[in-house]
Design a protein around this nucleic acid. Structure first.
Length: 664
DNA sequence: CACCACCAAC
């Protein structure tokens, strides 16, 4: 048996740590015949990889029987930086007996990751001998902060540049929307590696130039996995799912990023089932999901509202220690919200520190979607107490909450306060929230006034909000104004015609209504198909409007639907026929109200979901008004609780009432 | 120790 050197043991220890086998590494460390400083350094570096073993790394450093070297200290410093413990890193840096250029560069990276660019620059200036690595780190720090002029100045000042510095500068231009400048540098750089090619490729993809990206991809000497992954994402962003899938299938060397890119492509293009099955296939092949694939799959879960699967994912995330990442936890919160589990969402939210603005927004928007105005405003107050700066999306959430709960006074105050806050740019989305708020509250004239005086061009969403308000408050005159504008902006869509005919009907203008109906049926207008689904027994059961027969258990579903009809009739319910018309845009070929997809899903839920458990139904479009009334009554007759998530919001039905208070 | 990919809210 060959004699093993201490150095080879040390290398093996480092390898075990890198491959997520800390126990094997520790075992070997304790078993090895003799240890040198390199062994202790490997141990410290390994224990610094995971956040929860950082204290062990610090203890190991303190207990080395030999005098520690710069490398020993720097390994722990790297651990602190990696896990965002910048205060500890700074403290350690100052305690260190000596520092080399690596030490400086590690801490520099810490400042840059935290966005503390000016402090990074201060440290950089204090650095005795600045090597090309430190310069490049500083340069890319400026680029990430969007300070491209300073980055370029640093680049021009550099005494020596290597391919990494060139690539950093190219990437900086590319990420800051200067793809032409990036290309110019790319053309003149002395030598390129595959990272340079990939950086340029990503520049094109982020600028939305898929064709240029494809040309560059074809010109590349070889195709690194990162470039293929980026290309897939680029295809996905342009709806080219087939191209992305072809790339995925052609690739022989896939990494975890490839899998998460494929899942992301499916998720983004609403191929939700494909996203789920791809994630499952990845697990089957024994590939550890990285946190990005968790994020994508949580987003899929949120869209499908598969609560049980979502809970499983949460458990898996905890096992992988991904619950420390803001992005992943935000996705988790949104998943719980969209699955209707607000308590759990709030608990996850409360536990996570430090929260970023997106996380606050997730929570505020979540409450708004559930029609919980008080709670949304409460979180908004907490946000301000925490001295967190709200952004434009925060206000969309808060205004939506006010709108859904009729808080006109609060909404007006908040809207006006936005104008004072110079860091918030008032966009069309904010105006549409406000138009919606005023319109729902019956202040249709004021809403029209607001539109006429707004500084940005009103879009289809704004006119649509006004139109909806007109229908709610039976204002045919303003509805016609809004419809005309809507038809200019979106000539192919059926929505405005349908709304208009509905308003004519409800205001007694029968002839106009009839003309409108004829017009709608004579033209082939865009109608999106309505569908609803329900998660049962780890499966998603999908129902489409007017088509009961495609479900394998259609016989019992039909029975249930008929039974429900009988019960509804007995309690004096009569179908509101006016919604048949309204539903032309919502339900493709709606033949009968009771075949609406949400009604089928509710029937299936009543059959399958155990008594005492709420029935959770999802719908891709806005809930039909007649179904809304029927479901209210169903909860009273059957003493069941039904939670329906439609395209806009949640409806919690219980004891014959809905949480939206019929205001939606 | 620096350059490329996979990443949350509307």
């Amino acid at each position: 048996m060959p004699l093993r050197t201490t150095a080879s043991y040390n290398a093996l220890i480092a390898g075990y740590f890198r491959n997520h086998l800390p126990d094997a590494a520790l075992g070997l460390f304790h078993r090895m015949p003799s240890r040198d400083l390199g062994s202790y350094n490997a141990l410290i570096a390994g224990l610094s990889l995971r956040r929860h073993t950082l204290p062990d790394a610090a203890a190991a450093l303190a207990s080395i029987p030999l005098p520690p070297s710069v490398v020993s200290f720097t390994s722990l410093l790297r651990g602190y930086v990696r896990h965002g413990l910048l205060a500890d890193a700074i403290r350690l840096f100052h305690q260190m007996p000596e520092r080399n250029h690596v030490t400086y560069t590690v801490l520099l990276g810490g400042f840059l990751d935290a966005g503390r660019v000016n402090e990074a620059r201060k440290l950089f200036d204090e650095m005795p001998d600045k090597d090309v690595v430190a310069r490049t780190a500083m340069l890319s720090g400026y680029c990430q902060a969007g300070r491209i002029t300073e980055a370029r100045a640093l680049f021009d000042e550099m005494p020596k540049r290597n391919v990494v510095s060139w690539t950093a500068m190219i990437s900086g231009y590319a990420q800051n929307g200067k793809v032409i400048l990036a290309r110019k540098l790319f053309e003149v750089m002395p030598d390129r590696n595959e990272v340079s090619w990939t950086a340029m490729l990503v520049g094109y993809i982020q600028a939305g130039h898929v064709e240029d990206a494809e040309d560059l991809f074809n010109a590349m000497p070889d195709h690194p996995v990162a470039a293929c992954n980026a290309m897939m994402v680029g295809f996905g962003q342009h709806g080219m799912v087939d191209a992305a899938k072809a790339m995925f299938e052609r690739m022989c060397a896939r990494d975890d990023g490839t899998w998460s890119a494929m899942i992301k492509v499916y998720e983004q293009n609403e191929f939700l089932m494909e996203a789920l099955s791809t994630f499952r296939e990845m697990l089957c092949r024994g590939i550890r999901p990285n946190y990005t694939s968790f994020i994508s799959i949580l987003t899929v879960c949120a869209a499908l509202a598969t609560a049980d699967y979502g809970r499983e994912l949460h458990a898996a995330m905890l096992r992988c220690s991904f619950d420390t990442d803001v992005f992943a936890v935000s996705a988790l919160i949104t998943m719980y919200i969209k699955c209707g589990n607000l308590d759990k969402a709030k608990r996850v939210f409360n536990m996570f520190e430090p929260k970023d603005v997106v996380m606050w927004n997730s929570m505020i928007t979540g409450y708004a979607q559930h029609g919980l105005g008080e709670e949304a405003l409460g979180i908004f107050d907490d946000l301000r107490l925490a001295r967190m700066a709200p952004d434009g999306i925060t206000y969309i959430g808060v205004l939506t909450a006010c709108s859904y709960t009729g808080k006109v006074k609060e909404g007006r105050e908040i809207f006006n306060s936005m104008g004072m806050n110079s860091s918030i740019r008032l966009g069309a989305a904010h105006y549409s929230c406000m138009v919606d708020l005023l319109g729902r509250a019956g202040l249709v004239d004021e809403a029209l006034d607001l539109i006429n005086n707004m500084p940005v061009e009103p879009d289809a969403i704004i006119w649509g909000a006004l139109m909806g308000a007109c229908r709610m408050h039976k204002n045919a005159e303003i509805a016609e104004v809004a419809a005309k504008k809507l038809l200019e902006l979106e000539p192919g869509s059926a929505g405005p015609y349908v709304l208009l005919s509905h308003i004519y009907t409800s205001t007694g203008r029968w002839e106009d209504a009839s003309d409108m109906r004829k017009f709608i049926s004579s033209r082939n207008l865009n109608k999106s198909p309505g569908c609803s689904w329900i998660e049962y027994n780890k499966m998603v059961h999908l129902f489409t409007s007017g088509d009961v027969l495609s479900h394998p258990e259609h016989a019992i579903i039909l029975n249930m639907l008929e039974e429900l009809d009988g019960l509804l009739m007995e309690s004096g319910y009569s179908a509101d026929g006016s919604f048949v018309l309204h539903d032309v845009d919502e339900e493709q070929k709606a033949q009968s109200l009771r075949y609406h997809s949400e009604r089928q899903a509710v029937a299936y839920g009543l059959l399958k979901v155990p008594a005492g458990m709420p029935i959770r139904v999802m719908k891709n479009l806005r809930v039909c008004g007649d179904c809304h009334s029927a479901i209210k009554l169903i909860t009273k007759i059957t003493s069941r609780e039904i939670i329906l998530r439609d395209a806009n919001r949640f409806h919690h039905f219980k004891d014959g009432l809905c949480s939206c208070r019929d205001y939606w």
